[in-house]
């Protein structure tokens, strides 16, 4: 307990220190929202990976493998394919015009401030739900580790996150991501050999897992249609989530982006594969957990020695915090930069713009915890909230963004219909559709059909909107 507290305090002190340095290094709005847009591949790739890997991995994925078996792990392959598409197909055209936020890109390409406002509202709503899921996971960790009520853990994490994110802006976010990715890597790399030794070695682990649950290494627990469409959700969502797309503006050029994406893919593959192995250890050692989401906290608590358990705890917190900080800064930009900028007028100083950004980020950060205090939004397994969020982002943004830079005929009406239709279809399928199919597929198809159909029957885009994106 004491060791956990000491490690956690040191971890937080480093994060705060980086936040403070971020504050000092932030000189204008460009620094605050995209860290100046001049990062190299090491920090750029690390921030992409740290943003991708969330409590969804350290609490959720392990929980699903614990319950449903190894076949879920095959979804992992869809993630590098998504990022490859991002680096090879999308990024070269998307970064021709460098903006500060995704809604600002949408406004330029679709020549309409309404498109920008709609994109910003979708981001705000979806991010609040997603941040909530992550904060709930944080509360769970605090409860298991420190024995404090989960709600206090949630409030505590929110305060820490807001402290460095809203003060230090994107510079603090990317550098804390870098540090946090290192903590996540150290956590799982150190935990794996010890956890395997606890069950008597690798061969013993394999025998015991199959004895405990003969279906672990089969394709029987999840329907193939669900596996494939969940993979599609991860693939499209990795490309189209605004917090990932913003990372393309953060890195300085295409060469950097290709290398950054490579680092990102390596980190995601390695960390996930180790987490999957830890799920097997949990199946053997704790065969009767009430929910799979408890598998990682139990390993941290009961399998690892105190010091390593504390590092692992910091790793789980880092996974959660590095994702939430990125979501906060992007949701804050949607509120302050994309919606609130009209409050300031064009003549406002950089200083005032940054303070509006800080205020917006703080407001967005308080909403999830206030909703939780009101009893809204607790319940589902973390991984499934992550999947719904990823599906929503994929169904709302993939088509307007990718076709936006590849199809001249895409119009603002098409983009609005595509975003709204994709989102509504995803939600409706989640509520009323067959659970054997991930909602992303209907959402994506509706989004694509509306984009093409509505664009073709409306007036083509004006030349001035297309020129920056289709030069020559």
């Amino acid at each position: 307990m004491i060791v956990s507290i000491v490690v956690f305090v040191i971890y937080c002190a480093i994060v705060f220190g980086i936040g403070w340095l971020g504050l000092r290094a932030t000189r204008d709005e460009k620094d605050f929202w995209i860290a100046g847009g001049r990062l190299g591949w090491l920090v750029g790739g690390a921030t992409l990976a740290a943003t991708h890997i969330s409590a969804g991995t350290y609490i959720g994925t392990i929980g699903v493998i614990y319950g449903a078996g190894w076949s879920f792990g095959w979804l992992l392959l869809s993630i590098p394919l998504g990022y490859w598409f991002m680096a090879a197909v999308l990024a070269p055209r998307f970064t021709r015009v460098r903006k500060l936020t995704l809604p600002a890109f949408m406004e330029d390409r679709y020549y309409s401030s309404r498109v920008r406002a709609l994109a910003a509202v979708i981001i705000l709503v979806a991010y609040i739900v997603f941040i909530q899921a992550q904060i709930v996971a944080g509360g769970l960790i605090a409860n298991v580790t420190f024995g404090i009520p989960a709600i206090w853990g949630m409030i505590g994490f929110t305060v820490i996150l807001l402290a460095y994110t809203s003060i230090g802006g994107m510079i603090a976010v990317v550098w804390t991501d870098y540090f946090q990715l290192a903590v996540m890597g150290i956590g799982v790399l150190a935990a794996l050999p010890i956890a395997i030794r606890q069950v008597g070695g690798f061969d013993e682990l394999m025998t015991l897992v199959q004895a405990a649950n003969p279906r672990v290494f089969t394709w029987e627990s999840l329907p193939p249609s669900l596996l494939i469409t969940m993979g599609l959700a991860f693939m499209l969502g990795s490309v189209a989530s605004p917090e990932k797309l913003t990372r393309l503006y953060v890195m300085k050029d295409m060469r950097t982006i290709r290398r950054g994406v490579l680092l990102n893919i390596v980190a995601i593959l390695v960390i996930n594969l180790i987490v999957f192995m830890l799920a097997l250890v949990a199946i053997v050692m704790f065969p009767a957990l009430p929910t799979g989401d408890l598998a990682m906290p139990m390993i941290t608590h009961a399998v690892l020695p105190a010091f390593l358990g504390a590092i692992m705890l910091a790793a789980i917190a880092a996974a959660m915090m590095s994702t939430v900080s990125s979501l906060l800064i992007v949701a804050g930009s949607a509120l302050s930069f994309d919606i609130g900028h009209t409050l300031l007028g064009p003549a406002a100083s950089q200083e005032r713009r940054m303070w509006l950004g800080r205020a917006g980020t703080a407001v967005v950060g308080c909403i999830p915890v206030l909703l939780l205090l009101g009893g809204v939004g607790q319940g589902e397994l973390v991984q499934f909230i992550v999947l719904l969020f990823t599906g929503l982002m994929a169904a709302s943004f993939f088509v307007p963004v990718v076709l936006g830079v590849y199809w001249r005929r895409g119009t603002k009406e098409g983009a609005i219909a595509s975003m709204l239709g994709g989102m509504i279809a995803t939600f409706s399928w989640k509520l009323y559709g067959s659970p054997a199919l991930d909602p992303v597929l209907p959402g994506f198809l509706v989004s694509l059909a509306l984009m093409i159909g509505v664009s073709l029957v409306t007036r083509p885009p004006p030349r001035h909107a297309l020129e920056p994106f289709f030069p020559g």
Partner: peptide
Amino acid sequence: MNPGFVFWGLFLAAAATLLAYVLWMWWVER
């Protein structure tokens, strides 16, 4: 299906994907 394939296949497939990406990167920048 053979449990070994379900388990080890994922590691192999992940390594192959990574290798393919690196080769693509080399091809683009050569």
